[in-house]
Nucleic acid binder design. Sequence first.
DNA 1: TGTCAACGATCTGTATACTAGTTACGAAAA
DNA 2: TTTTCGTAACTAGTATACAGATCGTTGACA
Lengths: 240, 240
Amino acid sequence: MESIVEPLYRKLRQDIVECELTPGRSFSEAEFGRLYSASRTPVREACRRLEHEGLIRIIPFRGYIIAPLSVAEFHDLEEMQLIFEPEAAALAAERANSEELEEMKNLATYEYRVGDRSSYREFIQKNYQLHTLIAQSTRNKRLYDVVSNIHIRLMRFFYLGLPFDSYGPALVAEHIRIADAIYARDVEEARCRAREHIRMAMDRSATLLMSAIRFGEAVFDSSSSLDGTIPNTRSRARRI
Amino acid sequence: MESIVEPLYRKLRQDIVECELTPGRSFSEAEFGRLYSASRTPVREACRRLEHEGLIRIIPFRGYIIAPLSVAEFHDLEEMQLIFEPEAAALAAERANSEELEEMKNLATYEYRVGDRSSYREFIQKNYQLHTLIAQSTRNKRLYDVVSNIHIRLMRFFYLGLPFDSYGPALVAEHIRIADAIYARDVEEARCRAREHIRMAMDRSATLLMSAIRFGEAVFDSSSSLDGTIPNTRSRARRI
DNA sequence: TGTCAACGATCTGTATACTAGTTACGAAAA
DNA sequence: TTTTCGTAACTAGTATACAGATCGTTGACA
């Protein structure tokens, strides 16, 4: 349909999600235009969309920054998951059609090699597809939109290289349990397994964060905050 | 900050929510520009935002239509409420500060006169404020955004003149029970009362829809659908 | 009279010129 | 040497010109 904005938006989103564009890095519209061979209008439109989705921050009359990652945001996203994923799984168990059920089994059983980076990246994608497929199976478009957005934001943390991949086998096992419950159209079981999955994921990330803090690593972006304050790291655009 | 887009967006959103702009009505960017004294660029930007929020539909190379209302959308929105609002109330019971608690009590006890149209409109606003205040008290920005968007979409149905107002006293009583539970920081009670509130609201709207159908009224927009199909009512913009 | 193709009106999509806000930097003054 | 203030350089915000898509209309032809 739209021949410039749509592909540009997708490419930008992909680059942000995969952390090709470093969180916190600043840009101008012209710079994006040069990088992605587009004029300001489509760049602007794509950026507005990304801002709405929480991947970019706009600083009026100054420029843009790739939204920094923060522990607070990660926590909020997990909290959101805990609210809707069990319900989504329950609704999916009622409403998914047979193709969707098959596809879920497929996605859930993706074999993945611990320590293999490209395999991990593949797994992140499959994970996104599985969770959004469940959301899609609820037949509730609004719910799908929310689930998709939350997962897109979460994926940035995974791509950042947090060593979630070491939990691979556990994740796969949990996914299979959810998919099986939905396949069996067992509403209550689906809800429970999904809740369990998110709870486990929260435990795992808490463990990782704790050990990171213990070893004094800077976890994500320390200057980021929820109140809209702009970190005062100097703009790269200006430094050039 | 932005001196044209922001006010324009707010005004447009208000006019759509209050059904000043009839659902299903079509417009061009130029037409909006004339109506709201703005050039195409800000109009375009505001419309893109509204499209993202589900209040406007964009027909590529053709124009815009005010998103039609449908029973399906109403159902989806209520389902979303049932998922998010009980958890929001529970979290608010844990995290709200004292000003927020006071404000909730205030909003919940708004006295409202059945049959009085302007009082009903006032009530719709208070209802929105109460529900978003609860969401805000969770300290989870994503949750707030979702709840706010759901309610903005729902308000269009209320403003459309659906006779929800006859249920006023029941609504107020339910609101007070939720606010009381949160005030008492009773997490489980808050969750239950909120869930009860949404369930009751769903029952009430189902009753209203049933009687509307019984009497052969066209309920909302019969041609609207979820699959992105554009209703083929002729464009008003073109007819002029 | 019915059908189909070409044209034109009207719209959005995109590029760009212009306006105005922000801030870094340097010169002048204390 | 330090501070302050003006200016220039850079930014996004806005208006508009132009290109390209869509679809209704109309006229020619079967």
